[in-house]
Amino acid sequence: MLASERSALTKADTHGILLRPEHSILGSSDRLGWQSFYASHQEEHPYEASFVANDHHLIIVHLNGPVRIRRNLSGERSEAKVGTGGLFILPAKRDFGVALMAPLETVHLYIHNDLIEAAVRELCRDDLDAVEFLPRMGEHDLLLEQLARLACTMLKEQQTDLFADSVARLIAAQLVRHHTIARHVELPRITGLQPSQMARVRALVAEKMEAPLSVDDLARTANLSPIHFARQFKRTTGRAPYQYIIEQRVERARDLLRGHLSIAEIAVRCGFTHQEHLTRMFGRLTGVTPAVYRRSLL
């Protein structure tokens, strides 16, 4: 299933930890329309509860600590003192119980199972049913910690689903490569895209700029899998696919600002979700707002 065919993930798709009255939500992706993963940033307070299985994989990253955690996973009980950056990984379709002994600041990431399945198909020799996802409690994974902290920034900036989809694919690939028991394939060499592949990608972005383009769309144009495409694209351009799309949209906006269309209409024609989104991205790349840039032309 493509990202454009999925519904946005919300609190309703979580285990319900975030719905408990003890916790204070500092930010979440509920209203951002992210379809590939759900993110929340909160202050949790001591509690003990059991939760039924969920269809999506859960990663919790501790932003402070240490704090003592007890877990009951399918009758197997464990306890650990988890420090800053420690992980709590719960594979999909597993009931569990947890007890938190002290206040804790966390990021919760729910990765859509579609992305996990796609990563398994590309990164493992085994079928999905033969891949065992490993529960974690207290282990460290620097990349997952960095991506969790990036998710906090994305929540504050109200980033779009395009950015979220790219981050979710990185998380899914890291989860499959480093937190499973499976026969992993050797990744192809990073040699960059062929000129013909890059030309097709450029043409697609120019033609479909108003549409909600995804990494899947660009990868299909280059006849590559999404994970392999993203790696080769970064080698060719020095940028992630979502960064390239944003840059092209801002460049189109610069051209249109020479005319008489309203800034709101320009935002729509360049594929931004609204005028504020265009203003934020335009300012980040050019240092000025669209309105200031237009006045400078006059």
Rank of each mutant, 00 (worst) to 15 (best):
V52G: 10
H57D: 13
L58K: 13
E48W: 02
A92Q: 11
N64G: 15
E43L: 08
E44D: 11
Q42R: 05
I60N: 13
A80V: 03
P66N: 10
I89N: 04
L73H: 04
E48S: 14
G83K: 12
N72E: 14
Y47R: 01
G97I: 02
V98L: 14
A92P: 03
E76M: 01
K93Q: 13
Y47E: 07
R70A: 10
P46G: 10
P66T: 08
V67N: 04
G75Q: 06
H57T: 15
H62Y: 12
E48D: 06
F88R: 07
L58H: 15
G65H: 03
I69D: 09
A99F: 00
K81F: 02
G75T: 05
N72M: 10
R77H: 07
L100Q: 10
Q42D: 06
A92L: 01
H45N: 10
F51R: 10
G75I: 04
Y47H: 14
I89D: 02
A99D: 03
K81P: 00
A92D: 06
L58N: 12
V61H: 02
H62R: 13
H57S: 12
I60T: 15
H45I: 00
A92G: 05
P66S: 13
S50C: 02
F96I: 01
E43W: 01
A49D: 14
I60H: 07
F96H: 15
P91T: 06
G86M: 11
P66M: 06
H41V: 00
L58A: 13
E76W: 00
N72T: 14
E44R: 12
G86W: 07
R77G: 01
Y47C: 08
G65K: 09
V67R: 08
S40Y: 02
N72A: 13
